[in-house]
Computed example of a mutant assay.
Amino acid sequence: MNLRERYEELEEKILSPLATISKNSKGREKDEKKCDIRTDFQRDRDRIIHSKAFRRLKHKTQVFIAPEGDHYRTRLTHTLEVSQIARTISRAIRLNEDLTEAIALGHDLGHTPFGHTGEFALDKVTSNGFKHNYQSLRVVEYLEKGKGLNLTHEVKDGILSHSGELTAATNEGKVVKLADKIAYINHDIDDAIRAGILKNDDLPKECIKVLGKTNSERLNKMIMAVIMHAINYGEIKLIGEVGEATWELRRFMFENVYYGSEAKKEEDKAQNLVISLFEYYMKKPEEMPKEYNQRVIEFGLEQSVIDYIAGMTDRYAIHEFNRLFIPSPWQKYF
């Protein structure tokens, strides 16, 4: 019995009936020789961490577009916070922490430059619309390394189902979907206060009375509510008094930060930038890197342009816009 097999045997002994057991995975689209050390879900986590798409998240917007300050969240730090929250919940209720972590680390790989602003822009101009969770799945199925990462069915399902009306097939995927919301509600409050857009006193008093005055208190209340409901009822939900306060606080953030606040004053520029790039490459696909031109035959022109733009970081998108649309000064003086 190798190390992987020993670990798989241990999972069956210590994990909850609610958990997804590694050796019971539905597997990968392409069969592979098993690793002697790591379970399939551990391998998936490692593949995501070592991907280029994961590294690019450090230069993609969370809420504040291309922030100058060192302490504002980016899409990468958001991902790490989601992973931490999701692992805490999964460990407490004895779910498969490796599966949870893999889903959490991969859930935003398909996010556009400028966060949801870029997502809305592509959704406007593409013929079939654009959703970042579908693009995240596309990254791990086709785009990364030019052939995808060949992840397990359970990890791909969790990545796709973390957003929108979809429901994950595993409890680990359901945990990540809640952890995503718990993370951004709280860290976006922290960033908004740092930016001077909100003050602590602005937060809804009834919500704060239930959830707590500090970021730490609120996180603890929300996480504990999910854990206790799972222990008592065998369901992954955030409901009851804490759940109601959480969703009310989320509504407050949409009204006061995500829509129409000072944090969003550059959004129109960002959307115009993304739309301009899309329109330009649709007319001149030869201007895209060679690898994306080669995909036109397989995936079509529009999808290849979407893949290229969605993969850009904020700063790369700005660089490309400047290169294509802003005249360079003439430098030959003599």
Rank of each mutant, 00 (worst) to 15 (best):
V63K: 02
K290A: 08
R91A: 15
K237L: 15
M288D: 06
I297S: 13
L324R: 09
Q294M: 06
G311Y: 01
L178D: 09
D40R: 10
L203C: 02
E68G: 09
I89V: 15
T117D: 06
I21W: 02
G173P: 00
R138K: 15
V82C: 08
Q271V: 02
N24F: 13
K34M: 12
K26C: 10
Y316C: 04
V63P: 00
E320N: 05
G148C: 13
E141C: 01
G243E: 12
R55A: 10
L249C: 11
M228W: 09
A192K: 04
P17S: 10
H116R: 14
K199E: 15
D46R: 07
Q271C: 05
G27F: 14
N186S: 13
D31L: 14
D307N: 14
V242K: 06
K145P: 00
E68W: 07
L109P: 01
K199N: 14
A225N: 11
G148N: 09
I297R: 13
N220S: 12
D307L: 03
I231C: 05
I48Y: 03
L109F: 09
I189G: 02
K34A: 14
T61S: 12
G146L: 15
L211R: 02
S163D: 12
I21Q: 04
L10V: 14
H162L: 06
L211F: 09
Y142D: 13
V210G: 03
K213R: 11
V242G: 07
H107P: 07
I306P: 01
K174G: 01
Y308L: 12
V226Q: 03
I185T: 11
A245K: 05
T167C: 00
I89P: 03
G27S: 14
E8Y: 06
G118V: 09
D70K: 10
